[in-house]
Design a protein around this nucleic acid. Sequence first.
RNA 1: GCCGAGGUAGCCAAGUUGGUCACGGCGGGAGUCUGAAAAACUUCAAAUGUCAGUUCGAUUCUGACCCUCGGCA
Length: 323
Amino acid sequence: MICYLYMENSNQHKKLVIVLGATATGKTRLAVKLAKKFNGEIISADSRQVFRGMDIGTGKDLSEYGSQKAIKGLKKASGVPYHLIDIISPKTSFNVAKYQKLAYRAIINVQKQGKIPFLVGGTGLYIDAVINGYQFGENKKSKKQEIEIRKKLDKQSLLQLLLKLKKIDLVTYNKIDKKNRRRVQRALEIYFSSGKTKSESDQQNPPDWDILILGVSFSLEKIYQKIDSRLEDRLKEGMVREIKKLRRGGVSWKRLEEFGLEYRWVARYLQKKINYSELVENLRNDIHHFAKRQLTWFKRNNKIIWVSDFKTAEGEIKKILDP
RNA sequence: GCCGAGGUAGCCAAGUUGGUCACGGCGGGAGUCUGAAAAACUUCAAAUGUCAGUUCGAUUCUGACCCUCGGCA
C-alpha cells in the first residue's frame, strides 16, 4: 500500500508524509504529534489557510503547533515549524500552480535539513499537484494584466468562451465540462496569461520521494458532529468579527463570497441578506457538503492508508523509515 | 360549536378551465476534477390528507370525514 515510487534503494530516498482528511477530523493535531515524534515540519495543504487574517474561519489552530515565533516568513520556535500558512494577503489571488511551487520549495528545504516534511491539509487538488507533479506553464502576465484578462472574459457568454476554446485548444475543449463556465473561462485565462494551452501543459513529473499518504478516518456522522460543535466554537470565538475586520481591511464582498463557507455566509449575514439563524443553518449544511466532497475526492486515491488513531499512523511511518 | 382559509415528496412551494401521475428550491443520495478547488459543475430518488361519488378517465369536480391555521363564540 505504501507508495514507493522507486523500489530500489528506497531507504536512500527522501521522504514525504501526507496527512489528509475531511474538514474537522483533527488532521493538524495528529500531524503535529507525528511531526514531534519523527522530527518533522509541517507544510500546510490548505487553499484558505495561506491567507493572512483568515484564522478562525479557516481553523488555523496555530496554538496546536506549540509556541511559535515568526522568523523571516518561516515560523520557528519550540513548537513544530509550519509552512504555507499566513503567506499572502486575502486580496491577492492564489491557485494550485503557485501553491505547488511554494510547497516543493518548502518540502525540499525540510528534507535538506534531514527532517521529514509532513504535508497536511484537505485541499485535494493541491495535494495531487504535489504528488503527481503536474507541470504548470509559466504565468507571464502581471497581476494587473491578469485582472484585465478576467474582466474581458467575464463579459462573454459561455457559448462565446466555448467557441474560443475550441479554436485555441481542441484537446481541452473535448475534455472539458461544457456546462462549467468557470472551468472553460479558466482554461482560456491560462492560455492568455501563459501563452501555452492547457493541454500543452497537461503533463506530470512526479517527484521521486517515498510518499506515505495517511488519511484521517471517521464516519461521516462523526464528522458532522465535529463540524457542528466546531462551528459553535468558531462563532463564539468571534468569527463574525474576524470577517468584519477583513472587510474593513478592504476585502470585497465578492471576494468573501468566493472564499466560500464561513466567509461566504458571514458576508451575506453582514450584508443583511440573511438573518443569524439562516447563517448558522446554511453554513452548517455547506460545511457538511464540503466534507462529503472532500471524501469523494479522496476516494479516487487508492494509495491512501486510512487511520483513526496515532498508534497506527506512527506504525505506518516507522515502516517507511526503516523498511 | 359556527364562519373563513387550507391540506401537493423530510421541509418550503408551483400547477392542472378533468386526459401521457405534477414546475422549482432546500434537504437527501451518487458523482466530476491538472491553473478561482472551502470554488465551479453534473446527476439520481422522492409527493397530490382519508374514504366515497360523478366520469371512459380525477391531483384537478361533488360529498363526508380527519387534520392545520385565522376569526367569532
